[in-house]
Design a protein around this nucleic acid. Sequence first.
DNA 1: GACCACTGGTTTTTT
DNA 2: ACCAGTGGTC
Length: 749
Amino acid sequence: MNSLLDRLNPPQLAAVTLPPAHALILAGAGSGKTRVLTTRIAWLISNRQVAPPGVLAVTFTNKAAKEMQTRLAAILPINVRGMWIGTFHGLCNRLLRAHYRDAGLPQLFQILDSADQQASVKRLLKSLNVDDEKFPPRELCHFINAQKEQGLRAAAVEAAFGYTDDWARKRVGLYEAYEAQCQREGVVDFAELLLRSYELLERNEPLRRHYQERFRHILVDEFQDTNKLQYRWLKLLAGGGAALFCVGDDDQSIYAFRGADVGNMADFEREFQVQNLIRLEQNYRSHGNILDAANAIIKNNPSRLGKNLWTEAGSGEPIRIYESYSDGDEARWIVEEIRALVREGHARAEIALLYRSNAQSRALEHALFNAGLPYRVYGGLRFFERAEIKHALAYLRLIANTDDDTAFARVVNFPARGIGARSLENLQDAAKAANSSLHAAIPQVAGAGGVKLAGFAQLIVKLREAAHLPLPELVDHVIELSGLRTHYKNEKEGQERLDNLDELINAAASFVAEEGTPNQDGEITGEFGNDLSSFSSDITPAALVFTETVQPMLASFLAHASLEAGEHQAGEGDDALQLMTVHSAKGLEFNVVFISGLEDGLFPHENSMSEDKGLEEERRLMYVAVTRARQRLYLSFAQTRMLHGQTRYNLPSRFLDEVPDELVKWLTPRAGKGGFAVSSAPTFTSAPRRSESSGGSGFRIGQSVMHAKFGLGVIVNAEGSGTDARVQVNFGHAGMKWLALSVAKLEAA
DNA sequence: GACCACTGGTTTTTT
DNA sequence: ACCAGTGGTC
């Protein structure tokens, strides 16, 4: 068993073998964080400090949870799938399924993903005759989720903030109405999973005691990404004396924009009087120059817990910086560079192209496509989010729960069966009057619309009669009987959608194979199975009973579809270049990394400047991007870039200035502080449309200029001529200014 | 109910 | 530039 600890460095070893007390592990990028977590669990179990059911391990993504399980299974001779290792949402789902009654939910409650939630809010606004211009569904969802993530119900929002005006009051009212609608429909959104299970544990003392006593060791991955509610959830579960082992890196906190609160790290340290603070600073991933650059960049952030990565590897290659005239030129240069790398023997899959925002992938894809280089873009539409899949799932959801109005509204007229807006309006009115679901209100609708609706109700009855079929057959049956298959067969470009629907049947089959296989004791123990064996049976005996007609696998499969939208994408496994945003690159590593579009306004993003601490988060994002690279790192920027159909002129990113000169090799003449080196004369592309030449002043759009007060800038626009000539200049730090040429003393820079 | 023109809105994203 | 969603017409 000592071999388990053999290859750990001293701080890693210390972390893994800590006594059962609270601990905060500050784990830098590439410092072996996942390894420490899994080894810690394995060590605890093999040293009999805790039995497998006493461990609770939480991650953010399914991928991380799966990786932890796989690694553990390789070390320990136990059934890992029965352990409580999962995402916050997955574990909360498990908790709520087991105690649905105590949580006030129907047994087969459905989970709304973000799109479902928005559709649900939209429907709510419509039924209440609320102007969706005043309350955009998107923003309302954001508001509702933010409140839930603070642990605030609608009633509590008022108590917490009071109402400043009618609009605020109305907004909270809508939150309340949304809660009521979800409750009536028996659906929960993502944030609700968390809040509901938090409230369940908080209010139900025997249940809380049960879990507090059960979990002796709680381990948290990516702790810096937890929001307030998740932290409170952890505190509640650890309230019975469990040891909380939190691993995180404040420098890699890049999700504040969706509620993550790095402050949780400091709070944890203080509130739990953490005596064991361990820093993992030795990096096993990157060469020295890359690490030095990352350290130099992140050093500019004032509020850090403090940490400095080092490596035993040599300094390696310099960081290469390239300036190009346009985004297209940048992409073409990247293609050439990649060709050379591949010739030198680099695997394409080991080369990553990172960018700040998805819109930037277009130019890169264009160039890669023309060059015939295989690539894979991450972050597109996921399998379970495709329209045809969501349609099929909606039918399945109606089998599980006819009150699910979101599912109902989605497919009542898809494929088209002549139920128009008119009939639906009547139905909605009837449902509202009876305070019932849309399905239940069908008999109230008279006329031709009523007949057609009754036909749809009949279809649901037929589908429900098949609910006992094995899951894959049920899915197949639903696709057939609903008319989806026929619909897509008749559609000109429906073949891909048909293939996807077949893939859904396959997914159901493999889900049954993986999750539904009973173990020796005949229990279903997968993440989405109802792991009831682990609960003391006196608490929820009722949870063992399933609705007779509906098989448990269906509910589990639907939860699986919502919680794990799936990275089911083409080209997986091929030797393809990896294209993704910096956000989605977190946790990954590559031999060669290109970070493109390093321009002020893009990266750091202009929207971040107005936000409090926005620039710091952007800098952490840059830190994450840089630390993805093992051997070679390229940074590139362009003077002009097409965005939203307009050419934009940006200055080089301030982050470039933060990389020490001695680590860098400029592939183009070095740009001055905050300006361009290469005068905008394009060397390998046609000149851009120069709308005006600023009244013959000698300045042109795209030119770098120096101003006594504002410093360096780029001319982005011009109007007027002669003494009236004015130019608009982007000064980066100092912002965008209109200057009269006759007054402002501008010099070409 | 199907098709086409117009509008608005585009940071990052998991669950 | 480009998508999605909407409102008009047939």
